[in-house]
Amino acid sequence: MDAGGGIMGADNADRAVDAFVTHRNLLFTVAYEMLGSAADAEDVLQETWLRWADADLPAVRDQRAYLVRITTRLSLNRLRAVGRRRESYVGSWLPEPLLTAPDVADDIELAESVSMAMLLVLETLAPTERAVFVLREVFDLAYDEIAEAVDKSPAAVRQIAHRARAHVAARRPRGVVSPDESRRVLRAFQLALETGDVQGLLDVLAPDVVLLGDGGGIRQAVLRPVAGADKVSRLLCATQLRVATMALHRAEVNGHPALILRLNGALDTVLALRIDDGLISGVYAVRNPEKLSHLRSETALRR
């Protein structure tokens, strides 16, 4: 009897591990899009695993839906908690950048949803609105499934989804930018930075471009948004990127081409861009070292 129970227990444990590993990248992506922080997303996944390990597996009809529901609820709890913490953040808070594989860029909808620009738009949603928008628009979950995840009725979820969709539509990038167009703009931006070419920057910056910097109170960064092509171009050129100890490298960050700045060979800054109508409308400079740990290796994201 005990031996049989032990065998069954081990078999259940193996099935639990297999299911979690199968859906892990999906769960991380859900948590990351909810939180904008890889570190917080990893914490949520650890909690999800603990809940999943205690679940009655034979009673679970849809393992994917069950795991997404746990992850969503835990992400909502954490989002409400970190929202209070971000109110006292030094300077602008930017999402944690991720080094992503080329296949993320190939999935246009996924790439847009994890872009720095879209994650900043999602920051303007209330927690439940963000959860509903992400689960519906990015992961295409049914309203009934979302209702279970956020503890609302399906009718309420439909209303929340409609409201969130309209909110995001008014703020998201104005059109899908092709990878070739992104790379072209990024190359021109990089060349202008490396040569200190103010006019070259003005040629690729939108007149109303906004630069946000995130040093987290640890590294020097602009504390308030800098707006306007003239101000942004002069600020960027003033960083003296041409000195021998600094180097810019192109990389895929959050599904889009971006620049990684290294100082004396060490990772110093990530420069992600928002591109609208062929011009850079947003520059996001992440310098907080606590947010740069996921740039040492690629992060797998899945829908």
Rank of each mutant, 00 (worst) to 15 (best):
A131I: 13
D180T: 15
R224G: 03
D18E: 15
G228K: 06
S233D: 04
I70L: 12
V82K: 09
V253R: 00
R242E: 15
L120P: 01
S92M: 14
E129N: 11
R158T: 15
L135E: 03
F133R: 03
L119P: 01
A19L: 07
D214S: 02
A170D: 15
G6R: 11
D144Y: 07
Y32D: 00
L202A: 07
T72A: 00
E148T: 11
R302G: 05
R183M: 12
G215R: 12
R69I: 05
L259W: 05
L263N: 10
A161C: 04
L241P: 02
Q199T: 09
G282M: 01
W52G: 00
H162D: 15
A13N: 09
V283L: 08
P257A: 09
Q63D: 10
L259P: 00
T48D: 04
S115E: 04
A266N: 11
Y89L: 05
R136V: 15
A55M: 07
A188M: 10
A247F: 05
C237Y: 08
A101W: 08
F28T: 05
L267H: 03
V132W: 04
K231W: 03
F139H: 15
A161R: 07
D40G: 05
A192I: 11
L259H: 06
E123Q: 14
Y143T: 13
F189K: 05
L27V: 07
L110M: 06
A41S: 05
G213A: 03
V243H: 09
L67D: 00
L202C: 02
Q240D: 14
R84A: 10
G278M: 05
W93F: 10
R130Y: 04
G278C: 05
A247R: 15
L223Y: 06
H167C: 04
A39G: 10
E109R: 15
F133I: 07
K291S: 02
P127W: 02
E129Y: 08
L94E: 01
R51E: 12
A3V: 13
A285W: 07
H162P: 00
R15I: 13
W52Y: 06
K291I: 07
P97E: 05
R250H: 12
P58T: 11
I260P: 04
Q46M: 11
A81C: 01
T269N: 04
H162F: 15
I7G: 01
R84K: 13
D230V: 14
L279P: 01
L27H: 03
R302C: 05
D144S: 13
D14C: 08
D62F: 09
M246F: 15
R165M: 04
R242A: 13
V204I: 07
A166N: 12
S297E: 07
W52S: 02
H23Y: 13
T22Q: 14
M1I: 11
W52Q: 02
L135N: 03
G6V: 12
G228D: 06
L141A: 03
R158Q: 15
R73W: 12
V210M: 03
R61W: 02
R234Y: 08
V226W: 04
R183T: 12
L292D: 03
S297T: 09
Q159Y: 10
T71M: 04
L211P: 03
L120A: 10
N288P: 00
S88F: 11
A166V: 13
G6M: 13
